[in-house]
Every structure is written in structure tokens, then in C-alpha cells.
């Protein structure tokens, strides 16, 4: 935890007169107020499931530390800065993230990174179903979602760009579930440590890494190592899942005038 003088500490576990922890509206109001006063370093203590934390925020120097368990939709529409969670994050973390960085020293829930189009998400542990659904990229800029352990089914569904990297740390079998990249039409899913054809969803195929991919893999591994003080064994092979076509619906429809 930072003990910088300019850091503002907010106790999210503060009880109201009925004994409830701080309501999410009040917590977010305080975060926004602090940011609007030019204080960009915030520490949230005793977070107890408050949702929507730091949504639509994001100055480049913003840094919010979250101790405890944030609720769903952490960092939705995030534009920049860093959110660092010392605990587990819940569902829809990084919903439609535009930019910035979210670091989770634990696991994250289902639909992590839904529809993100920029920024970086590093999850130390595992994540749930439909991670990175419909993430996309524009003008070469896309999000990077890194999951240290395993993810469940439908990772990268409808994916239209960006990178998902599932590292499989601590896994003894394939770190991804079924229907990997179902309906994907852009981007790449990188899987370290095993993935079978039958795990692929419709529209996805397996490929070897090219030079660019290898550089991305190395870059993301180093970021992970730095964020979590980890060391990753480079000898485990990484495979790439990519789209068969950027036009998955080609030939599916008939436009004859009836």
C-alpha cells in the first residue's frame, strides 16, 4: 500500500446507522469527488462488494488501490490510470474498458473484460466463463487480457480484436474450457500449456505463433512477472487461437427479392 502523503484513504467498510457498509453510490461519489479535487492516488480500504467502483474514471496518473472484495463491474468504461485489487474481483470486471490498467491479485469472475476496446487487465489467478467476450480493436489498438491460471468455457467469444492470454500457471490440464473463440472474427487468444481441436468454438482455428505473437507473449509475461513478482517457465509451449475469417456470416444469408 502506498503511504504517499497525497494519497487519500477511503474506508469502504464504514457503517451507516443501520450497520450497513458504505453504499456504492456514496463510495463512488467520494471517489469522483476526490479525483475532481486533483487527488489522483486513492486507497479504498475494507471494500465489501461495492459495485461499479471507479466506472468511467481514468486520468493517466490516476491510481486506485482496492483492498477487500470489489463488486461487479469494477472499472467499467475505464479510460486510463490503474486500478489494483488486493483480493478477488467479481463478474464483469473491466466492462467496456477503453484504456488504463486493472491488476487483480486474485481471481476475477465471469465475463471479465466484456466488450473492452483498450487497456490492460492482469489477473493473477483464474477467471470464469466468457472471458473477453466481444473485445475489439481499432486502428491497431486493442485490449490485452491476461489470466494467470485458467478460464472457463467460451473465452474470446465473438472476439473482434485484441489479445487474450491464458497462462495456465499451476494447471495440470488445458487451462481453457470448451468453445474457445466461438464466433471470433478478429484478434488472438494465446494459450500456454495445451489446447485440443475439440475445445475450439465455431469460427476459430489453431495456429503456431508468428514473430509478432511471440513478442506479445514475452511482453505480457514480463508484465505479469513484474506485477505479481512471479517467474514464468518459458519452456511451456504457447498456442494461438485465431479466426478462420473476418466475415463469419459470409454465405449464411440469401438476399433474393421474394
Amino acid at each position: 500500500m502506498s503511504d504517499d502523503n497525497s494519497t487519500v484513504v477511503i474506508d469502504a467498510g464504514e457503517r451507516d446507522r443501520l450497520g450497513h457498509p458504505l453504499d456504492y453510490r456514496e463510495l463512488n461519489r467520494r471517489i469522483r469527488k476526490t479525483l475532481s479535487e486533483g487527488q489522483e492516488r486513492i486507497v479504498l480500504m475494507n471494500v465489501m462488494g461495492q459495485r461499479y467502483i471507479a466506472s468511467a474514471t481514468g486520468g493517466t496518473r490516476m491510481r486506485i488501490e482496492i483492498h477487500g472484495t470489489p463488486g461487479n463491474d469494477l472499472g467499467a468504461f475505464l479510460n486510463g490510470g490503474t486500478l489494483e485489487v488486493f483480493g478477488n474481483a467479481q463478474d464483469v470486471t473491466a466492462n467496456t474498458m477503453n484504456g488504463g490498467r486493472i491488476v487483480v491479485h486474485g481471481n476475477s469472475g465471469d465475463i471479465t473484460g466484456l466488450a473492452a476496446r483498450g487497456g490492460t487487465l492482469l489477473v493473477k489467478g483464474n477467471s470464469g466463463y466468457r472471458v473477453g467476450i466481444h473485445i475489439k480493436e481499432f486502428e491497431g489498438v486493442g485490449p490485452s487480457l491476461v489470466i494467470g491460471g485458467f478460464v472457463n468455457d467460451y473465452v474470446g467469444e465473438y472476439m473482434a480484436g485484441g489479445t487474450i492470454f491464458v497462462m495456465g500457471l499451476g494447471c495440470t490440464s488445458s487451462p481453457v474450457g470448451l468453445n474457445v473463440g466461438a464466433g471470433m472474427h478478429g484478434g488472438r487468444i494465446l494459450v500456454r500449456g495445451g489446447l485440443d481441436e475439440h475445445q475450439l468454438g465455431p469460427g476459430a482455428c489453431l495456429a503456431e505463433l508468428d514473430e509478432k505473437d511471440a513478442a506479445v507473449v514475452e511482453g505480457l509475461m514480463s508484465q505479469y512477472e513484474a506485477a505479481f513478482a512471479a517467474t514464468i517457465d518459458r519452456s511451456v509451449p504457447v498456442l494461438k487461437v485465431m479466426p478462420l475469417d473476418s466475415r463469419p456470416f459470409r454465405g449464411h444469408y440469401d438476399s433474393t427479392t421474394i
Binding site: 459495485r51 463478474d91 466484456l114 466481444h134 475489439k136 480493436e137 480484436g161 478478429g186 473476418s246 466475415r247
Partner: peptide, 28 residues
């Protein structure tokens, strides 16, 4: 999104499988 790719909107919102989930998107 990139030039020339199909722009697909998933059939459901995959963050919404219930009224409670919808409440979350409204709230966020």
C-alpha cells in the same frame, strides 16, 4: 472497429441473463 470486418452484436447481452443483471447494467 477495423475496416471491412463484419460488425456483430451478440444475440443476448452476455452480462444480462436476468432482471437483476439488467439492473446492474442500468446502474453502471
Amino acid at each position: 472497429i477495423p475496416l471491412g470486418t463484419d460488425a456483430l452484436s451478440p444475440y443476448p447481452h452476455h452480462d444480462i441473463y436476468s432482471i437483476e443483471d439488467l439492473q446492474q447494467l442500468i446502474s453502471v
